[in-house]
Computed example of a mutant assay.
Amino acid sequence: MKKWITSAAIFAAAFFPRAALAAEQAPAEHGSWLLLMFFAINFALFVWVLVHFAGPVLKKFFADRAVTIRTALSRAQSAFAEAEDLANKAAARMAALAAELKKLADELEEETAFQVGKVADLAKSTAERIHRDTEMSSSALSEAAKRRVRAQLAESATSMASDLIGRNFQPSDQGRLINGFMDQLGSGDRP
C-alpha cells in the first residue's frame, strides 16, 4: 500500500506541479536556481515515471507490433511466392494447353484428310462397281433379249414347221421316218 501512495504522490507532483508548489508560495523570482532545479527534478521524475511504468508497456506494445508486422510480412511474402508459383504454373499450363490444342488441330486435320481420302477412294470404287454392274446388267439384259428373240424365233420356226409338216406330211413319210430310225438303232448310231 505504501508503494501505491508513493506512486500517487509522484504522479501528482509530475502532472500537477502547481499543486506541489502551492504548499509554499514563495515570491516569484525570475531566474531562480531553486526553481530551475525544481523543474529539472519534476521533469526527471516525469521521465522516470514514464520509463518505469509506461516503458514496459510501450516496449511490449512495440515488440508485439513488430511481431505482428513480421508475421504479416512473412504471410504476405509467402502469399506472394505462392501467387507467383501459381502464376508460373498457370502460364505453363496455358502453354501446355496451347500445345495440346495445336496437336489436336493437327490430328483433326490429318484425320479429316484421311477420311476425305477414304471417302474419295470409296466413291471411286463405288463408281467402278456401278460401271461394272451396269455393264453386267446391260450384257445380261442383252443376253436375255437374245434368248427371248431366239425363243420367239424357235417358237415361230416350230409353228411354221408344224404348219408346213401338217400340210405336206403324208402317211408314207411317217413309215419311212420310223424305218430310218430303227435302222440307226440297229446299227448303233445315234440320230
Rank of each mutant, 00 (worst) to 15 (best):
A72Y: 09
A72C: 13
A72D: 10
L73M: 09
S74K: 12
S74P: 02
R75Q: 09
R75I: 08
R75C: 02
R75K: 10
Q77P: 05
Q77T: 15
Q77F: 04
S78N: 14
S78W: 04
S78I: 03
F80E: 10
A81S: 15
E82R: 08
E84C: 11
L86A: 11
A91S: 07
A91C: 01
A91L: 08
A91D: 04
A92I: 12
R93K: 07
R93Q: 15
R93L: 11
M94V: 08
A96V: 04
A96K: 05
A96G: 00
L97A: 11
L97P: 02
A98M: 01
A98R: 08
A99V: 03
E100G: 01
E100Y: 00
L101Y: 04
L101F: 05
K103W: 05
A105N: 11
A105S: 12
A105V: 00
E107N: 12
E109I: 00
E109A: 06
E110V: 01
E110K: 11
E110D: 07
E111A: 05
E111F: 09
E111T: 07
T112F: 09
A113F: 02
Q115W: 07
Q115Y: 03
V116R: 13
V119W: 01
V119R: 05
A120W: 08
D121T: 06
D121P: 00
L122D: 05
L122P: 01
A123M: 12
A123H: 02
K124G: 05
K124T: 13
T126Q: 12
T126M: 11
A127D: 10
A127K: 11
E128Q: 06
R129W: 05
R129V: 07
R129L: 09
I130Y: 08
H131W: 04
R132Y: 01
D133K: 10
D133A: 15
M136Q: 15
M136T: 14
M136W: 07
M136R: 08
S137P: 03
S137H: 12
S138E: 13
S139L: 13
A140I: 09
A140V: 12
S142P: 00
E143S: 06
E143F: 03
A145I: 08
K146E: 05
A151N: 08
A151Y: 01
A151G: 09
Q152D: 12
Q152L: 13
Q152H: 06
A154R: 02
E155Y: 01
S156T: 10
S156Q: 11
A157K: 15
S159Q: 00
S159P: 06
S159V: 00
M160R: 05
M160P: 03
M160D: 07
D163P: 09
L164H: 14
I165M: 10
G166Y: 01
N168E: 10
F169W: 05
Q170S: 07
P171V: 06
P171T: 06
S172T: 15
S172D: 10
D173H: 13
D173I: 09
G175A: 09
R176M: 14
L177C: 02
L177P: 03
I178D: 04
N179D: 11
F181L: 13
F181K: 03
D183N: 11
D183Q: 15
D183V: 14
D183M: 13
D183K: 15
Q184Y: 12
L185P: 03
L185H: 03
S187Q: 14
